[in-house]
Amino acid sequence: GYSSVLVPIYLGEMAPASLRGSLGTLTQFALVIGILVADLLAFPFATLSLWRVLFAVTALTAILQLLISGFLLESPRFLLLRDANSPAARDIIKRLRGLVDDEEVEEAVGTFMSADKEEGEQESMITLLGEMTSNPKIRLLLISSLVLQVSQQLCGINAVFYYSTTFFQGVISNPLVGTTILGAVNVLGTWMALLLMDKVGRKTLILWSSGVMFISCIFIVLAFLGYLNKSISLAAMNVYVIFFEIGLGPIPWLIVAEMFQTRYLAAAMSVSSQVNWVCNFIIGFTFPYMNLYLGPYSFVPFAFFLALCFIYSLFVLPETQGTTPDELAGEEPPAEADPEE
């Protein structure tokens, strides 16, 4: 819970604008690699006598993370908010940006300071949310971030991973193999997202992601009904996972750091994370009942929410690539495009 809020904010503050999308996607890349490793570990350890070893892996990973956390750099924005003359912040900026000239460093410092000029004193989340909802343009950004978080979960991706062995019964002799194939495809899809994230607009990727996932859901339902070969359901599920990782996987997290000014960022990320985890719980809890009562139609609700996501993204969702939070909030005119681009 903490990491789902803090990591996107941390990366958003550390990364230059040109790399924010790729570095934000790395969070998702690390998550899907972890899922794949867990799938592979299940082969030797998912037994009645050794299943506790899988829990031990979690503890060992946490210990390793604690040991290497001392190598993390502090956010220069955090340091500059507390001391505008901080030499540590300037040293970190120099190391992160590969700058040599002090004038370039001060220019980067000025960028951080201008972004934080209206940060002011700490205010309660309720106060900040009140301000955000009373401003039409910021309210639209907040609604958009919540729509993407809801769509990320109600598209059904975690139902696929939580209950993947159920889906593959009767399709593959060992359902665990099918789950591992999905995990590998998950990594492949996120790698593709890394290549595309800073070359294609966020809105475009969300449209492709939700659109192709919707079509995949239709094929999955038809295969479950017996109109298509069962192997089609396996292929459609893999396409579904790939296109999730291209758009709806990483973008709902990284786009929050691109949408909101520093003043509102922590509150927006906190609310977005809470909504995401609530929807995650709803899917994890209700899908067995959906599968029981809807049977082969259990992916129809997911297709419905994907269609809504596509429509919202097409007509309402603002593009964040190449913009600043001030521009999106209407407090700064849009930057002119480079005529050579």
Rank of each mutant, 00 (worst) to 15 (best):
F219T: 09
Q321F: 13
Y227W: 11
R90A: 03
L81E: 13
N276C: 10
E118R: 12
E245W: 08
V171M: 03
L129E: 08
L194Y: 08
N174Q: 13
A159Q: 09
N280D: 07
A115R: 04
L205R: 09
T27H: 15
M213E: 02
I9L: 04
G98W: 02
E258W: 09
L80P: 07
L23D: 09
I172L: 13
V171A: 05
R202T: 10
F224H: 11
V221M: 08
E107I: 14
L207K: 06
P76D: 01
L96E: 01
R52S: 13
S124R: 07
Y293E: 09
Y162D: 07
E332T: 13
D102V: 06
N158A: 02
L248V: 01
N85V: 00
T190V: 03
L317Q: 02
F55E: 11
N276A: 00
N238M: 15
T61A: 15
Y289F: 15
L96G: 11
I92R: 00
N174I: 12
L222S: 06
L328D: 05
S3C: 15
E131K: 10
N229G: 14
L234F: 12
E104H: 06
K199Q: 05
S145R: 01
L79E: 08
A30G: 14
L328G: 02
E121F: 12
F285T: 04
G110T: 04
L328N: 00
T324E: 11
T165Q: 08
L148Y: 10
E123A: 14
R77V: 06
I93Y: 02
L306Y: 05
F299P: 02
V7F: 00
F43I: 10
V53I: 11
N229P: 12
S151M: 10
D338H: 05
P339E: 02
F244S: 03
G34A: 00
R139C: 12
S233W: 12
P339F: 11
L31D: 12
P44G: 07
K199L: 05
M113Y: 09
S298V: 12
L31G: 14
L254E: 06
L182N: 03
E119V: 15
Q122L: 15
V185A: 06
L31F: 15
F315N: 01
T179G: 06
L66S: 08
M113R: 11
D101F: 14
T286A: 14
K137D: 10
F167V: 13
A89N: 08
T190I: 03
T320Q: 02
L207T: 02
D101H: 14
F43E: 05
G1C: 14
E332Y: 13
S233T: 11
G34V: 00
F161R: 03
T323E: 03
N291I: 12
K117T: 12
S270I: 06
E258T: 00
V316F: 13
A59I: 15
M197N: 03
G12M: 04
I181E: 00
R139I: 06
E336H: 14
S86Y: 08
L6W: 02
R95E: 09
S86T: 06
D83C: 07
G322Q: 00
F302Q: 01
A193N: 03
T286E: 08
G226V: 02
L265P: 01
L66D: 05
K137G: 13
K137A: 14
L265T: 03
V57S: 10
G249W: 08
G284S: 12
L19F: 11
F243L: 05
S298W: 12
L228W: 09
E106L: 08
V150Y: 04
T262G: 13
G98C: 01
P252D: 09
E258R: 09
